[in-house]
Design a protein around this nucleic acid. Sequence first.
RNA 1: GGAGAGUUGCCGGAGUGGUUGAACGGGACGGUCUCGAAAACCGUUGUAUCUUUUUACAGGUACCCAGGGUUCGAAUCCCUGACUCUCCGCCA
Length: 419
Amino acid sequence: MLDIKFIRNNIELVRQAIHNKNEKADLDALLEIDEQRRKLQFAFDNLKAYQNSVSALIAQKKKTGDNIENELKAMTNTAEAIKAISAHLSIVNEKLEKMLLTIPNIPQADVPVGRDESSNKIVKIWGEPKQFPFTPKDHLELASQNKLLDLPRGAKISGSGFPLYTGEGARIERSLINFMLEYHLQKHNYTELIAPVIVNRKTMTGTGQLPKLEEDMYRIEKDDLFLIPTAEVPVTNIFADEVLSYKDLPKQFVAYTPCFRREAGSYGKETKGLQRLHQFNKVELVHFTEPEKSAAALEQILSDAEDILQAFNLHYRVAALCTGDLSFASQKTYDLEVWAPGTGKYLEVSSVSNFGEFQARRANIRYKDKTGKVKHLHTLNGSGVATPRLLIAILETYQTEDGSINLPAVLEPFLHLIL
RNA sequence: GGAGAGUUGCCGGAGUGGUUGAACGGGACGGUCUCGAAAACCGUUGUAUCUUUUUACAGGUACCCAGGGUUCGAAUCCCUGACUCUCCGCCA
């Protein structure tokens, strides 16, 4: 969330950001509540100060045995007034807190302004679409011919969008996860985490999924817990309510988790095969940095994710998202889109974002800088990368005319581990 | 799931109703001393928020797991919840 003081001092900037992000948030109502809150707080503080001073007097008089009847009488009224005002204050505080959670992060100045993805800017293209001397099949045909997937049975046991990987398909999927983890560990200096995939409401609020996206998540009602849509959620929250030292920063973690998304309302939209799933696997990169270093960290995460695609020699492009396509919590985001020759489309396999102090403020993650000042740090993350679409690109790119798959050599050691 | 114990500042640990933001010890930081270091001694050691013109300084308020309650007054008493630990049961 944004600092209420910042909002107060930059009303038009915030209003603009809400508009450019296609968000709905009642800024004026928020400012009015804030005004109310400050007035009440002031009154409350003054009453308390009075109460405290008389209390001290009572204590003193009691010691010396003086009469305290007058003081006690006055205090009864004061105590009542304090009770009334503090009840009001806590209602107002709660309201303000709730409203603050609906204000989106502000896009950085270099983010292109636009309503939707048509305004995204392609900032980089790597490699070129592979040419085939035959008509390339799409991943569904290839998967079925090679018995890599059994989607009907996945649908039977869970529902559509819950893929069942079979035999070699499962093995390839597992190898991909393992390859990416080891790559980031060994070449990019990350620390690996295995995190819970079910988290509580506070955690979901910390990274900004709640309150906005409650409908998009799987929820365990009985315990009020949620299945994570991305490892970003548990990993970013590991330092919630903590104060780190600048000496600990930057911290960079890599975590593999399954991800769960209800994808409410997206049926019929790119749902074919593995393109859009309710459960999928993803290796996620998360950074915690000092504020001055987050811009560079964003470029680094992007490059770390790109390395994976390059290792597989897959053609891809990088898009800088426009304001309207930025997520609620993001200041700036790059999408990595890999070319799937059989499907004939670029598929998003990674989203790399800088959240500034937005998430840190929500989750209350702070650090002590060199001068001893306590400040909110910056959080970033990027997929490194999501497997289903990566698998699509690999199958479709490395198919042969007879429909078999000639997997890239870098995967070999992971596919056939020696026991 | 049942029974019990606990949760205080960077850490350890006092504190069971009245100037306690919190004794005492340790750590860390600064200073004196020293060629330098150790030891010793002295000092400092929180976060949030409000008031004042921004800041600085100063002052007010809140915070002793969280939320309620009792009281003129709560770290201290009562209730609820979270978490940790121990024992029993169950279990991959």
